[in-house]
Amino acid sequence: MVRRFTGYLAYRDPDERDPGNEMPEFGDRVDKDIFEQILEMDENDPDREFSKSLIFGFFKQAAETFGKIETALKEKNLHELSRLGHFLKGSSATLGFTKIKDSCQVIQEYGNRHDESAGDVPDVEVCLQKISAALAKAKVDTEELEILMNEYFQ
C-alpha cells in the first residue's frame, strides 16, 4: 500500500484517514502525535520492523535502566539517579510514552535535589523516597504499556 508520505505533515481532516490504520487507543499513556511520527516511519512495511524494534528496544532499555536506578538508590547516589532519570526520560519522550517520561522527570529532579516545581529539597532521604515511589510507578506503567504494545504489534 502506497500512501502519501507527506500526509502526516499537512493538516489532515480526520475523515480522510484510512480506517485500517487507525491509531490504537493508549489513552494518556502515549502522546498520539509523537507515536504517530514513529509509526509513519515504516508505514510502508506491513510488519513494522522498524517501529517494533524501537518500541521493544525501549522496553529492554527501560528494564536495564530500572535495574541501574535500583542500584543507585541503594548507594544513595543522587547524581547517578538524576543522570539515569534524564536518560530514560529522553527515549520515553522520543517515543511519546508520556507517563513513563513524567516519572523519569521526577527521578531526574529529585536526583538534583529539586522538587517538581524546581524548589530545593535539602533532605537526601526525602529525595530517595520520592525517587523510589516514582520508580515503582514507572515500572508499573512500563509493564502495562508493554502488554498493550505487544497486542498492537502482534
Binding site: 508520505f5 511520527q37 514513529i38 509513519e40 516511519m41 515504516d42 522498524f50 524494534s53 524501537l54 528496544g57 525501549f58 532499555q61 536518560f87 529522553g90 527515549s91 522520543t94 517515543l95
Partner: peptide, 16 residues
Amino acid sequence: EDNLINQKVMLGMLRS
C-alpha cells in the same frame, strides 16, 4: 546521541 532509542528515531526520521 547517546540514547540508542533516540538515535534510532532520529536516524529513521532522517532516512525518511
